[in-house]
Write a protein that binds this DNA or RNA. Structure first.
Lengths: 219, 219
DNA sequence: TACTAAATCAAACGTTTGTTTGATTTTTCT
DNA sequence: AGAAAAATCAAACAAACGTTTGATTTAGTA
C-alpha cells in the first residue's frame, strides 16, 4: 500500500481530493460514500484506500491541502505595507470575501466540521484552529496598529468584529438563493449575481467596520 | 403502523425527537444511526419506524415542532407596540440572540441542512424558507417604519443587515470554545460564560445596527 | 527485451445501515 | 373480567457501507 506522510500528492490524488471536496460539501462526510467519490472521479473504489489509507485520511489530506492554500492567501494579504490601518482593514475584508466565495466547497466542509460536537480527528481540528487563529490575529494586528496611531477607538472587541466579518460572509454564502429570490435578482446569471453580491457585501462590511473601529472624524 | 399526519405528538414521540435533536446536532443526520437514537432514548429500534414511519420522517417531525416554536417566539417579539423603531430593533436583536443561543441544537441542525446542496425533503426546505422569510420580514417592517418616521437612513440593505445579525450570532455560537480560549474566559462556568457572551454580543450588534440604520443625530 | 514496481481492477469481506416481521406485553374501554 | 387496540420487543432482512484481497495491466528501468 502506498502511503504519503505529508504534502506530496500527485495529480491523481489531487483529482480525488477535488471530487471528494465537492461531494463532502454537498452531502456531508457521512452522507458521501467512497463509491460516490469513486464513481464521480471515474476510478476504482479501492484506489481511495490505496492512495490515502482510508476515508478519514482522505478528508485529512483535503484539509491539509486546502488550509495551507488558505493560510498562504491570507498571509499575502496581510503583508501590505505603506497603507493606513483602515485601508488594511478594507483589504482584509475584500480578501475574506474573495477567499470564502472562491472556495465555497472547502469552507462549507469546514463549517460542517465546526458544527460537529466531537472532532473527527485531531489533525482537522488543529488545522481549523490554526486558520481561525490566523484570521483573528490578522485583524488584531491591524486594529492595535490603528489604536497606536490614534485612528481607532480603544474599546474594540476583535473577537466580535471577527465574528461579524466571517459570520456575515458565511451567512450570505449559505443563503445565496434566498438572497437572490428576496432581492429579485433571479434574472441575473450566477456570475453577474456573484459580482453584484461581492460588491454590496464589501461596501456593507466596510461601512460597518469603519463605523465600529474608527472615530467619526476619520475620512 | 401508527402514523401522525400533523402536529400531534405524544410524550414518547417528543422524547424521541429531543434525543434525535441532540444527536443530529452533534453528528449530523447521516452520522446518526437509528440505533444510536434508540439506545440514548432507551427504546427499541423499531419504535422510530413505528412512531414516525422512517428516519426521514423523524427529522421532518423535528423541524415541524421546532420551527413552529421558533416562529411563535419571533412573532411575540415583533408584536411590540408603543416603541420607537430603534427600540424595536434592539428587541429584535436580543430576541435573535436568545432564540439562537437557547436552541443551539435545532439551529445547528438547520445550519447543516442549509449547507446541503440538495434538499433532504421539500417539507424541511419549506420550513427553513418560512423561518428565514419571517426573520427577514420582521427586520424589513421595522426599518420601513423607521424610514417613514425619518429616524432611519434610506439606503439600508435589509438582506445584508439580516445576514450580519444572524451570521454574527451563528458564528459566535459555532466558535464559542475558540472565543473562550482567545479571550481568556476559560475560568468561567458555562453559565457565566454564556451570560457574559450574550451581553457583549448584544451591545456589539446594537452598536452596529444603530450606526448602520440611524442618522448620527439619533440618541 | 526482460524484470520490477506502481497502478488498476472485479470480487469478496465482515459490519453497519434502515426497516419489517411476528410474537408478546401493556393499556384502554365496555 | 375480557376483548380490542396500542406499545414493545428480539430477531431477521436486504442493502449499503469502508476496506481488503489477489489477479491483471501499465509504466519505468536496466
Amino acid at each position: 500500500m502506498l502511503m504519503v506522510n505529508k504534502m506530496e500528492y500527485n495529480a491523481k490524488q489531487l483529482q480525488i481530493i477535488q471530487v471528494a471536496e465537492r461531494l463532502f460539501a454537498g452531502k456531508g462526510f457521512s452522507g458521501t460514500s467512497i463509491r460516490d467519490i469513486a464513481h464521480e472521479a471515474d476510478i476504482n473504489v479501492s484506489m481511495i484506500s490505496y492512495y490515502f489509507g482510508s476515508k478519514e485520511k482522505l478528508i485529512e489530506a483535503l484539509f491539509e491541502v486546502r488550509s495551507v492554500e488558505s493560510v498562504t492567501r491570507l498571509e499575502t494579504i496581510i503583508a501590505n505595507a505603506d497603507l493606513t490601518p483602515l485601508q488594511k482593514i478594507f483589504i482584509l475584508i475584500d480578501g475574506a470575501i474573495d477567499r470564502l466565495m472562491g472556495n465555497q466547497c472547502f469552507h462549507n466542509i469546514m463549517l460542517r466540521e465546526q458544527l460537529s460536537g466531537e472532532d473527527r480527528t485531531q489533525v482537522i481540528s488543529d488545522l481549523i484552529f490554526e486558520l481561525k487563529f490566523k484570521n483573528w490575529e490578522g485583524l488584531e494586528t491591524i486594529i492595535k496598529e490603528g489604536q497606536k496611531k490614534g485612528d481607532f477607538r480603544e474599546d474594540v472587541n476583535v473577537s466580535l468584529l471577527s465574528a461579524t466579518l466571517y459570520g456575515t460572509v458565511n451567512q450570505i454564502i449559505t443563503t445565496q438563493s434566498f438572497f437572490k429570490k428576496i432581492n429579485n435578482l433571479e434574472h441575473l446569471t450566477q456570475e453577474e449575481f456573484e459580482k453584484d453580491l461581492k460588491l454590496k457585501l464589501s461596501k456593507h462590511l466596510k461601512s460597518i467596520f469603519k463605523a465600529t473601529v474608527a472615530y467619526e472624524t476619520i475620512e
